[in-house]
Design a protein around this nucleic acid. Sequence first.
DNA 1: ACAAAAGTGTTGAGAGTACACCCATGC
DNA 2: GCATGGGTGTACTCTCAACACTTTTGT
Lengths: 238, 238
Amino acid sequence: MTDEKDFLSGYDPGDFPAFAVTADVVLLTMRAGRLCVLLIERGGPPFKGMWAFPGGFVKLDENLDQAASRELQEETGISGIDLTQFASYGDPDRDPRMRVVTVSYLAVVPDLPSPQASTDAAKARFWPVDDVEGTLAFDHDRILGDALSHLRTVVEYSPLAASFCEREFTVADLRRVYESIWGVDLDPSNFQRKVLGIDDFLVPTDRQSSSSAGGGRPARLYRLGKVSELRPPILPPD
Amino acid sequence: MTDEKDFLSGYDPGDFPAFAVTADVVLLTMRAGRLCVLLIERGGPPFKGMWAFPGGFVKLDENLDQAASRELQEETGISGIDLTQFASYGDPDRDPRMRVVTVSYLAVVPDLPSPQASTDAAKARFWPVDDVEGTLAFDHDRILGDALSHLRTVVEYSPLAASFCEREFTVADLRRVYESIWGVDLDPSNFQRKVLGIDDFLVPTDRQSSSSAGGGRPARLYRLGKVSELRPPILPPD
DNA sequence: ACAAAAGTGTTGAGAGTACACCCATGC
DNA sequence: GCATGGGTGTACTCTCAACACTTTTGT
């Protein structure tokens, strides 16, 4: 009966509950067919020695998106990738030090070189998602779970899965991404026809993959087209 | 280079940028075939006299979901409905008074009695969405746009559209909801077969609608079942 | 009887799956 | 040649949109 009155009419600036706001980045990649997440080992309390997402305080003169990419750049050296906000978390006890609301972002990248090479963030590395579930600092386990279910949903209806691939990739590369995410096997020939039949999804190059591993016909290389929506969706069979 | 160090190692509590955090509710309903949104007229600066979503400061001892339903209840008297978070907004200048991050929730309800009857929130009313786009306080126009596109997406793959209907409703009621949201005409007979063919979506009652308006065969009344996902999705033709 | 809305039957077009088969490369 | 993976052809199945038609009410 008081707060919202203050909010609706005039009030004394500074007369509001003070929160810290952070931006966290759940950055996913695919390594050897396993879904991996970029984590940073915490050097101090709370949760010292545990692993958490890159992220940190939003500054007073930047917006939420900017904070997320700045923190990612500062802590891991990674920049120039798409970050999309997917949820915010603000339970009273999620950080024992103070009241923090975190705005969480999802990023999907190809298999990058390990981040320690790039900056001073020596404690950053990729972990297979299955190996860390249930072990993260703060409420980051819950956030990771939400990020993964968000990923699995979005990937059916958007070309996001192609972000796991390099700039040029084969249809089989893309198929293996979907197979990993859904844990199913897809028929290579039908998958090929399906994705090539979607307008503006894959644009062919005139280059071919070097058929490196033990033979087999080289595959054509594609680049991601400008499609924004996959209709009909790419679904796992049943 | 300083903030995130503080965040990773120890630091002085209180040594962080102080934000206000609010929870806003975009509550949608369907009236006479038009999509409507619940708004509150602002009684004081800034944006005095303009309309905005119900919402207000998150308190230090409640979580974000609780803040959203509390504010909705206090400002409009509406309670007991599902609120789902869909996005957060925190541009530096979105509120001229201070730095505010707002966590936005979407709610979908049947045609409720006008809210002024229930509480002291005399300035709350439903507005047709088309009539207010571009006129709202703060960045609420952008939030409304995001809420609507979120609605249109979610409605294809979830039973959310049924939340626009009363507890018992006919297939035609539900069809008119989809027609309004997508702005298309759907074939009544095909729509009927489609939705009744989805397991656990609609559960029949033994009651019928009173065929009130000008004749026509009374329709069976249904209740919403326990399905959580619509596969295949309900799509507009083309 | 007639209009209006609910609900069913039928059919033809298109999409998806399974799988046979051909192509290009490494060994 | 043979193994391996890329890519095409084909036939069967299933779904869905279109629309004719029957059912049940109000006037």
